[in-house]
Design a protein around this nucleic acid. Sequence first.
DNA 1: CATTTGTTTGACATTTTAGTTAAACAAAAT
DNA 2: ATTTTGTTTAACTAAAATGTCAAACAAATG
Lengths: 198, 198
Amino acid sequence: MAVRDTGAEQKIKDSAKKMFFSEGKLHATTQDIADAAGVNRTLLNYYFRTREILFETVFKEAMQEMGVKLDSVFLSKTPFYEKIEMFIDVFTAEITAYPYREIFLITEIHRQDVKHLNTGPGHSQIFKTFFVEVQSAIDGGILRASTTPLNFTMNLFSIMAYPVIMEPLYRNMFDLNAEQFAENLKTRKAEILDMLFK
Amino acid sequence: MAVRDTGAEQKIKDSAKKMFFSEGKLHATTQDIADAAGVNRTLLNYYFRTREILFETVFKEAMQEMGVKLDSVFLSKTPFYEKIEMFIDVFTAEITAYPYREIFLITEIHRQDVKHLNTGPGHSQIFKTFFVEVQSAIDGGILRASTTPLNFTMNLFSIMAYPVIMEPLYRNMFDLNAEQFAENLKTRKAEILDMLFK
DNA sequence: CATTTGTTTGACATTTTAGTTAAACAAAAT
DNA sequence: ATTTTGTTTAACTAAAATGTCAAACAAATG
């Protein structure tokens, strides 16, 4: 049978991911997405039936991509400090590419009718395992005694993600241009490690 | 002249603030807002002319309210550590009441046409003053030498705001119910202070 | 080269949303 | 009691956005 695959379907998904997750255009319409992809809007319906399904598809793909990458870090047998370093590197790459992905999820969850909120089930177990490791680091004196695995993990996510998301606001508040802000972000890995570890 | 003021205008603003800033319903329509306020949708147009103006109005009000509160902290003559404690208390109250306010701003900024992005001008100067204070704390050995005023401030914002915003996702990822999550948030002030200060 | 199969388009229908208008209404002032 | 002024509503218009459909198209297959 003839399988042509001119790449339109992929172009649409890439375009949607870029608008939603990279550019933060949470109100993008199907027309916006089609235009950015350089295809006719009807193709969105041809490939994905409805706009909702397109949303689900790209979101699930994005979450799964991240899941795979984070798992490769969390499940590795590296010593704790090096593991966190790896995590920072991987997560920084993710958040830089898709700073608004989680925000997209949250706003979709909060929309009138919640249909596709699943972040994937297996995650909870992986974090339980990771939390044991963090607890060992606390008990072993590598981390501050005042922290907990949950707080440690949330802090880590927060410190890496939030500044990237808030860039437009922070640049205004702190009077920084794009270069200055980008330059500062680079200095943060060392800072984060120093802050989290004792 | 007859000034009746049945409170509809205020009800609309409160309803909009609640939907956008508290509940994170960034896609709320004028009908949604009117319904939640218990008024006829036409009243939104009567009082605010357009939906855009309503957005601007509630956002400016919300930012100004926060500005006043933060200024009262930043400009107070309290010693540095106590000042940060005050800040955490004030900001926690703010972020609990309006967790999605800044996210709303960011998504509006990223919308096709950027019209009302002004966060207010005076802020930049206030932060410059605060940054001097932070630098003194670094020089005085109260804060880690590896930090900078900018990083210290962004970390503070991040750690407080992000977990609240991400609650629906984190509860899923970490398998927590609403009570467990709320309980944990309460433990964070001590943790944050311990992490930020040497 | 005709057929099959998947792809793409334009035209249309439907739904949703924002904005307008004129009239009804209610309370205060004259 | 009537006028004035501000408030509220229903009905309507206009625009924007989603979804459907039939026909055109292009490449591989027989």
